[in-house]
C-alpha cells in the first residue's frame, strides 16, 4: 500500500500553532463524554418513566408511552439531529434567538444532548417495560395485598427487581449512546470522530487519526463494560441468578 506512515503526527503542532494534535483529539473525547453523560441522564430518567407508564393499567398512559417509543424509534437518528438543530428552533422563536446569539457550540451541545437523550430514552423505555413485564404477576399482587399503593409497589418492589434484570441490555444501550454521539458531528459538534477526521484532513495522516479514535472508542466501551459489570455485582441478590451473573 502506497501510504506515508507518520505516527508522530499527534505530537505536531496545528497550523494555527500553540496546540498539539493530541490535544485536539483529547478535546474531541471531552465533548463525546460530555454529550454522552448528559444524554444518558436524560435517557435513563425519561426512559424509566415512559417504560413504567407502559406497564400501568391506565389506557391513556400506556398509549402515551407507546407513541413516545414509536416516534423516536422510527425516524433515523441523523434526521432527528437535524430536526432538533435546524427545525424545532424555527417553531420556538425565543430558542431561535438564543441559538443565533450564543456561541454555536452551546446550541450544538444542547441539540445533541436532547436528540440523543430522547432517542435513547425510547430504547431504554422498551427495556424497562420488558423488565417489569418479565416479573411474575404475583409480585405486583403481593405488593398491593400488603396495602402498598401502586406508586409504592413500583418504587419498592417492581422497579428495583426490573432494573437488576435489565443491567446487561442497559449496558449495550449505553454503548450505543456513546457510539451514536458521533452523529453530533453532522451539526458541527467537534467530538471525537469529528476531530479524527479533521486531523486526517489537515495532515493527510488519516490512518493514524482514525486508528487513535478507534482505540479510544474501544477503550471507552471496554471501561463502560467493566463499570456495568461492577454495578451488576454490587446490586446482585444472593440466591438469585440474573442474566449476566455467573
Amino acid at each position: 500500500m502506497n501510504y506515508h506512515w507518520n505516527w508522530g503526527v499527534f505530537f505536531q503542532e496545528t497550523p494555527e500553532g500553540g496546540t498539539f494534535y493530541w490535544e485536539i483529539l483529547l478535546s474531541g473525547l471531552g465533548w463525546t463524554l460530555a454529550v454522552s453523560v448528559v444524554a444518558w441522564l436524560i435517557a435513563m430518567l425519561a426512559g424509566s418513566v415512559i417504560g413504567t407508564l407502559r406497564t400501568t393499567q391506565n389506557r391513556w398512559l400506556t398509549a402515551t408511552g407507546h407513541c413516545w417509543v414509536e416516534l423516536f424509534r422510527n425516524i433515523p437518528l441523523l434526521v432527528q439531529m437535524f430536526l432538533w438543530y435546524f427545525v424545532i428552533p424555527e417553531f420556538v422563536p425565543p430558542l431561535k434567538r438564543w441559538m443565533v446569539s450564543t456561541d454555536p457550540v452551546y446550541a450544538q451541545f444542547i441539540s445533541a444532548v436532547l436528540c440523543l437523550g430522547l432517542f435513547t430514552s425510547a430504547r431504554i423505555a422498551e427495556q424497562v417495560r420488558a423488565g417489569i413485564q418479565s416479573l411474575p404477576r404475583g409480585q405486583r399482587l403481593a405488593g398491593m395485598a400488603l396495602g402498598l399503593t401502586p406508586l409504592q409497589t413500583y418504587r419498592h418492589v417492581l422497579l428495583p427487581e426490573a432494573f437488576r434484570i435489565i443491567i446487561p441490555p442497559l449496558t449495550s444501550e449505553t454503548m450505543n449512546l456513546i457510539k451514536n454521539s458521533s452523529i453530533a458531528l453532522t451539526i458541527g459538534l467537534a467530538e471525537l470522530t469529528f476531530r479524527a477526521r479533521e486531523i486526517g484532513e489537515y495532515t493527510f495522516s488519516f490512518f493514524e487519526a482514525f486508528t487513535a479514535a478507534t482505540l479510544v472508542y474501544v477503550i471507552i466501551s471496554m471501561s463502560a463494560n467493566r463499570v456495568m459489570a461492577v454495578v451488576e455485582r454490587r446490586v446482585a441478590v444472593p440466591g438469585l441468578i440474573t442474566a449476566g451473573g455467573n
Binding site: M175, K179, S181, S182, F210, S221
Partner: peptide
C-alpha cells in the same frame, strides 16, 4: 460493534 458507524464510514471511505 465497538466503534461508531460514522467512524466506520470514514474508515472505509479512506
Amino acid at each position: 460493534r465497538s466503534i461508531p458507524l460514522v467512524l466506520v464510514i470514514f474508515w472505509f471511505f479512506f
